[in-house]
Design a protein around this nucleic acid. Structure first.
Lengths: 339, 339
DNA sequence: CTTTAGCACTCTCCACGTCCGAGTGCTAAT
DNA sequence: ATTAGCACTCGGACGTGGAGAGTGCTAAAG
């Protein structure tokens, strides 16, 4: 459908445009890439590419800029070269992350900074939604008179604590029994699952009226409400260097979106379902405010279960090859760390 | 030094400028505030005020804008009116924060959002540097074979967990003994203090060579390294509406500063020492990048010990009365919550 | 039939000049 | 001491015009 020569011209235009924004004309293409063709021929080809929807003209008698479909075509043809860059990056990542004894949250904070440093775009990392993590062990510790600290140990190495109100006269021994009960029944299940099971249990056993069990259920109900995953965003200042961010209103829109973190969390959660590294180019984004940007996202896993998502947001005129590689190998790197 | 009439003119100019940016001329002053004086007289007074350093002219034959000293004079004369606004705000705060069973971190996140919503500037909150918090109780729980979870309960209601590597063959019973030892010796002291004491202990008791104690010390050394306080920043998009943020480079500088959170942490930590609500106007800021902005900060306390800091960053042309009130009453509000 | 050279045309960007309005400072009158 | 009047200054808006980059078309060449 697209002959080899046209492809080469398309890629050339895209690469030119990525390097220096602003419409790219037929002359620069002939100068930078030696196809052995004259500007006139290139013009004809570019005209064809425009008809096919891969290029567009901001105004008559200006050069061409890639459309979203143009980028898409380019990105889809990239997978082959990707692996190559990946290997180089992975080596670099290993160097950067020598000291990782930290907990996962501050680790992800650093990771988002690293994403933005490497790419010069916006780096985003999300910690696993705790509802997905599996319980290894629960501990109940009396804290103040009417307060209980619930410590959840998960298989993923995440430790969480919640403070739960509790009847004042319960003893530590009773708490231990409750913890034991929970451990034996729910170990190895995800927190979300446990919460569901607990709710079922409630209706069943309330006839029993065992005050200890009912207190246990009450505690669990409070404790297993999943904490929303944290999200870390870095590189905002980085991205303001780019010429596409000369419009204040566009910046504000983006910032507004990024500040409403739950929106981003949702966005990335949806992506998390699909395999591999996802690329959303411009208008492919569901969010209106993101239409001017592209998003590259991947999930990191623990074993085979997806845990969290990392992503990079940049201009549509993004260095896709590099960015995809960075996201890809960082996700793989985190996955390896978690196992 | 400054007669009543001049003061009134100064305040009028400042208030005009706060409402609508752009140099304010003698005519608008006479129109909006009825001093019973003609523009010419106002001009003379404004000329005097300029000579005294309270006003300045961006260029000849333009109106006047306040200087940092002008704002300072204005702010210093404000304390009387402050209390009045405070009371109104406190009522509003109480309404907004009904459901605060959350842990302190997500609470501070919300608080920073609230600061920015109320002020339309940038809201910042810092969680207490954990080194300052006092130990109520420590629990050591074996987690994986060679991993130990240290749970620190503090008087301030903050629970922290650290994962510490440990010799594999230590039993839970031994851990309990170590915990008991730490509890008895260090309860009621701040984590920083404990860390210092531990270091001393090390040199003393290493002769003893009691393997249990030395293991305990090793654990503590790892566990009591204070986690840096978290910092929450909201309202970036809010502030971009303001006309002073039309310059991309200025935005970038600010974002860069805000992203380097440790810089802000340092800045606010310094302020935390002083009593009451602090106002830094423009060049009074130590940080170059903050010279274009003003900062209003206050500390919240637990009892009499300062715990953390909250702040608002806005343009120099800031509604100081309102902003100071917001910061002031929010700090008081948090203080009350913690007790 | 494909490629190329030549040419007229289009559109943006920038620099320059002009004009208008807002505001000042000064002086003289009240 | 205050005010009215007036000349002066400066920034911002507007329009114009030329330079530059790039296109599309046509006709010639391979």
């Amino acid at each position: 459908m697209l002959d080899e020569r046209s492809k080469k011209v398309l890629y050339a235009v895209i690469q030119c445009y990525i390097n220096t924004p602003g419409p790219v004309g037929s002359r620069v293409v002939t100068k930078k890439y030696h196809f052995g063709l004259s500007p006139a021929t290139i013009r004809n080809i570019m005209s064809d590419l425009e008809e096919m929807g891969y290029l567009s003209q901001p105004h008559t008698s200006a050069g061409r800029i890639p459309t979203d479909s143009g980028y898409r075509f380019y990105v889809d043809s990239l997978s082959a070269e990707k692996q190559l860059v990946n290997n180089v990056l992975t080596a670099e990542l290993n160097k950067k992350f020598e000291l990782i004894k930290k907990d996962i949250n501050s680790f992800l904070d650093d990771a988002s900074k690293m994403l933005s440093e490497l790419s010069h775009y916006i780096g985003i990392t999300m910690s696993p939604n705790t509802g997905m993590t599996t319980l290894r062990k629960i501990e109940l510790l009396k804290y103040r008179d009417n307060r209980l600290a619930v410590i959840l140990f998960t298989d993923e190495g995440i430790i969480q604590n919640r403070i739960v109100p509790v009847v004042p006269d319960i003893s530590q021994r009773e708490l231990n029994r409750i913890a034991e009960y929970i451990n034996s029944r729910f170990k190895g299940r995800s927190l979300d699952e446990i919460k569901r099971l607990i709710l079922k249990e409630m209706t069943k056993e309330k006839v029993l009226c065992d005050s200890l069990i009912s207190e246990a259920i009450r505690i669990c109900r409070n404790a297993f409400s999943a904490a929303p995953g944290n999200i870390y965003i870095s590189g905002l200042s980085e991205v303001l260097r780019l010429p596409e961010f000369c419009d204040i209103n566009r910046i504000r829109e983006l910032l507004q979106t990024l500040e409403a973190k739950h929106i981003i969390v949702n966005l990335l959660d949806n992506i998390a379902d699909s395999e591999g590294t996802q690329v959303l180019i411009g208008a492919e984004n569901i969010l209106d405010e993101m239409r001017q940007f592209s998003l590259v996202a991947a999930t990191y896993k623990e074993g085979s279960r997806p845990m969290g998502t990392i992503a990079i947001i940049g201009p549509r005129r993004m260095n896709y090859l590099e960015t995809i590689s960075i996201v890809d190998s960082t996700a793989q790197f985190i996955t390896k760390l978690l196992s």
